[in-house]
Nucleic acid binder design. Structure first.
Length: 322
DNA sequence: TACCCGTGGGT
DNA sequence: TACCCAAGGGT
C-alpha cells in the first residue's frame, strides 16, 4: 500500500528536478554500471567539482572498462587516484574489479558484499544503474532528514528508517538524484534556502534549520613535526612504498622524528599538510647516502603515486635541482 | 561505537 | 586565517 502522506513532496521533487536538476552530470547520462559505480566511489567524501574537473574523465580515459582496471597492477590504479585522497577507495576498486572479473552484480545485496561498497553506495549503484527502488543515505540526504524531521542527533540506523519513510518508491531514480541536488544547492549546511525548497511545506525544521543536526564538539587537531629526508646518490633519490594504513601503497620519502640537521645536509624548505586527524609540519632536507634498494630519477618519481605531502617535497627538490 | 582514512572547496 | 565538511567505508 502506498503512503499518501508525502505525495505532495514527491510531486514537488519531480517538478524541481525538471527545472533545476543537474541533468548534465556525466554519471547521469550513462547506463554503464561501471561508470556509475566509479562516480559513486570517487564522490565518497569528495565534492562533485573535484571529481568532475580533475579525475572522472581522466580515469575513464585510462581505464574505459572495469576489466581494464582488473588487468593492471594496483599501483597503476593508485597513480590514477593520486591527489584524490582516501586511497583505500582505489585499492578496493582494483580488488573489486578483479573479484567481479569486470562485471558488477546487478543488485544492492550483492553489491554491498564487495570491498569498498557500503549500504549507501550499494543502493546508489543499484538504483542508478539497475533501477532498484532503494533510498540512499549520503551527507546530503542525512542533512535533509535531520531538518525535515527536526532531529538533532541520532545514529545511522534511525537515519535509514527515516530515509525509508520519506523516499519515493515510484520514482526512486529522480528522488535520489534530487535529494543530492537539493542537499547541495538548497538544504546547505550554511545559509539554507528554505523558501525555494520542495520540502518546505512539511519540513519540521524550517523555522530554524541550523539547529539540525546538532553540532558536535570538535577536537583540536594535533601537529606532527617531521623531517622529510630525501636520501640520494647523485641524481637518484630514495623512496619507499607505505605499508601502514595511512597512504598505504603510495610512495614516500623517508620521514624522521627529532631529526638533527647538520652541515652535510641541504635544507630545501618547509611546508604544511592538513590531514583529517592531524597537521603535518614538515621540513625537507637533502642528504647523500650509499646505494639503497629503491632509487629513482626525477622522471621516474613522476610515474609513482605520491601523497600531497610528498608531492610538495618533490616540488622543493625540483626547485633545488634547477 | 568511535576512530581512522586525504584533499580541497567554501566561508 | 581557521574552520567545517564533502555522493562513506573499514575496523
Amino acid at each position: 500500500m502506498k503512503t499518501v502522506k508525502y505525495n505532495i513532496i514527491h510531486q514537488n521533487i519531480l517538478t524541481w528536478y525538471e527545472e533545476h536538476g543537474r541533468v548534465t552530470l556525466p554519471w547521469r547520462n550513462t547506463n554503464s554500471p561501471y561508470e556509475i559505480y566509479l562516480s559513486e566511489i570517487m564522490l565518497q567524501q569528495t565534492q562533485v567539482k573535484t571529481v568532475l574537473e580533475r579525475f572522472y574523465f581522466q580515469f575513464l580515459e585510462k581505464f574505459p572498462t572495469l576489466k581494464d582496471v582488473a588487468d593492471v597492477a594496483v599501483d597503476d590504479v593508485l597513480k590514477a587516484w593520486e591527489g584524490l585522497g582516501y586511497y583505500t577507495r582505489a585499492r578496493n576498486l582494483h580488488k573489486t574489479a578483479i573479484e567481479t572479473k569486470g562485471i558488477l552484480p546487478n543488485n544492492a545485496e550483492a553489491l554491498e558484499k564487495l570491498s569498498g561498497i557500503g549500504k549507501s553506495t550499494a543502493h546508489a549503484v543499484a538504483c542508478f544503474a539497475f533501477d532498484e527502488a532503494l533510498p540512499i543515505l549520503d551527507a546530503n540526504v542525512k542533512r535533509i532528514l535531520y531538518r525535515f524531521f527536526a532531529v538533532k542527533s541520532c545514529n545511522d540506523k534511525k537515519l535509514w528508517e527515516l530515509a525509508y519513510k520519506l523516499y519515493d518508491k515510484d520514482n526512486t531514480y529522480i528522488y535520489n538524484q534530487t535529494m543530492m541536488d537539493i542537499g547541495s544547492a538548497i538544504c546547505t549546511h550554511k545559509n539554507p534556502l528554505c523558501n525555494t525548497c520542495p520540502f518546505e511545506s512539511l519540513c519540521q525544521g524550517k523555522e530554524n534549520p541550523l539547529l539540525y543536526p546538532e553540532k558536535k564538539k570538535k577536537q583540536k587537531k594535533p601537529i606532527r613535526k617531521r623531517t622529510l629526508v630525501i636520501y640520494h646518490k647523485e641524481n637518484r633519490y630514495v623512496l619507499a612504498q607505505n605499508s601502514e594504513r595511512l597512504l598505504s601503497g603510495l610512495w614516500a620519502f623517508k620521514q624522521e622524528e627529532d631529526f638533527k640537521v647538520n652541515d652535510y645536509m641541504t635544507e630545501l624548505g618547509e611546508f604544511k599538510q592538513h590531514y583529517t586527524h592531524f597537521t603535518l609540519e614538515a621540513s625537507v632536507v637533502l642528504l647523500s647516502c650509499e646505494e639503497q634498494e629503491n632509487y629513482f630519477t626525477i622522471d621516474e618519481i613522476h610515474d609513482l603515486a605520491l601523497s600531497g605531502a610528498d608531492r610538495k617535497a618533490l616540488a622543493l627538490l625540483e626547485m633545488h635541482c634547477q
